[in-house]
Structure formats: C-alpha cells, structure tokens
Amino acid sequence: MNDVLVVDDDPHILKALKITLHAHGYNVMTAPDGGSALRSAAQYPPDAIVLDLGLPDLDGTTVIKRVRQWSRVPILVLSARHGSDDKVKALDAGADDYVTKPFGLDELLARLRAVQRWSFQADEAPVVTTASFTVNLAMRQVTRGGQDIRLTPTEWGILEILARNPEKLVTQQQLLTEIWGPAYAKEASYLRVYMAQLRRKLEPEPGNPRHFLTEAGIGYRFQP
C-alpha cells in the first residue's frame, strides 16, 4: 500500500506533503480540488487518500460520500476545521480518521499508517489480541488472563464494532445507530454507561484506560 492521493487547494501543503510522503516510501498523486480528486481516484485507484475539507469546488464531505459509493479506500481527513461537528460529519460520511491543521508530520504519518492497517485487518481472521485481553469475533468470546469474560449483548455489540475497527475513530452516532437504532443517535449518555462497564471488565486500570479511548464530544477509539 504505497500509492497516496493528496487533495488540498494549498499548493504549499501539496508540495510539502508530496516531498514528505515520498521520503517515507509513498508514491504521491496530488489534486487541487474535489473534481480532479474524484477523477484521479477513479482512474488511478490509490491505496489511501489524504483529503482537505475546504476545497474550492466541492466540500470535502461530498468528496468522501462520492468515493464511498464505489470504494473502501482509507481516507484521512486533513483540515483547518477544528469543530467537533465538522469531524463528526466527515467521519459519518465515511472518513477513517481526522487530523487538524496545523499538524505534526509524525502524527500525520502515524495516522496514515493506522488507517491503512485498519483497511488491511478488516479482511483478516477475526481475532484481536491486546496486552490485557483477547477478542475472538468469530466465537463471540472475550478472555482475560485465561478466563472467559461475560459481556451483555449490548456490551458485546459495542466491543465488536470497536474491535473490527482498531485504531479508527468511531463516532458516537455510528455506535448508537448500529446498537440501538437511528432513534437513539443522540443518546450519548447510553454509550458512557456501557463504555464504563466495558472498561471495568477489560481495562487493567478502568480510570486510566489504554484500550478504550475517548475523543471528547466525537466518539471512541479502540487501541489494541
């Protein structure tokens, strides 16, 4: 997975990212707007897309939705929009992660590696192993220290979604909609209760979680 499409209307950022990514082993294609990005992605399918939201022709969220009509390519959003609403919209549209400007190159490269790992792992055997516990998605079984951990159906549903998306930021709305249904999409308090229960059962230090991380106001990230 070495071909990356970078989409940004700032020529300086395009140039800097092209140089940096190329230096780290990526083949880089660039696009200055949404229309050319869609054409490029269709004609030369990349292994990942780094996408700015503030494009001159199409909003980045629209680009994500259109790409998702025909591709599961990992999409990393790179934007100056810091509001949680913008992040949630991009993630719900199908983005895999989000980095805000100004950004550190090390973080950007780490996030890019993470979304590519998630894409690769999605098709692998469904066993997720952490330093604290093991999740067998096929057997619907969780073990910790060699002992089976009993989870409620709701706890399992949340864990399964997060475990199938390691290191990916999953929004509250995604979890609520998939577990409880669209009518509960804004009931964040439900999630807080069940996440606290999962942490008590699976985290070595529930008050200082290392596996079930909260992105305040946005969602949760599972760190194996």
Score class of each variant (00 low, 15 high):
M1R: 08
N2S: 15
D3Q: 14
V4C: 08
V6D: 04
D9H: 09
P11D: 04
L14M: 11
A16M: 14
K18S: 14
A31C: 11
P32S: 11
L38P: 10
Q43K: 14
A48D: 12
L53Y: 07
L55K: 07
P56G: 08
L58I: 13
K65N: 10
R66I: 10
V67Y: 07
V67K: 14
Q69T: 03
S71G: 05
P74G: 11
A80K: 12
R81F: 11
R81N: 11
D86C: 10
A93E: 08
G94Y: 12
A95S: 04
K101P: 06
L109E: 12
L112M: 10
A114R: 05
V115S: 02
V115K: 06
D123F: 15
P126V: 10
V127M: 11
T130L: 08
N136K: 13
A138Y: 13
R140F: 14
T143P: 00
L151R: 03
G157N: 13
I158K: 07
E160M: 05
R164P: 02
N165R: 08
V170P: 03
Q172P: 02
G181D: 01
G181P: 00
K186M: 03
E187S: 09
A188E: 07
Y190E: 09
L191M: 00
R192H: 00
V193D: 01
M195W: 02
E203A: 01
P204D: 09
E205P: 01
G207Y: 04
N208Y: 00
G219E: 01
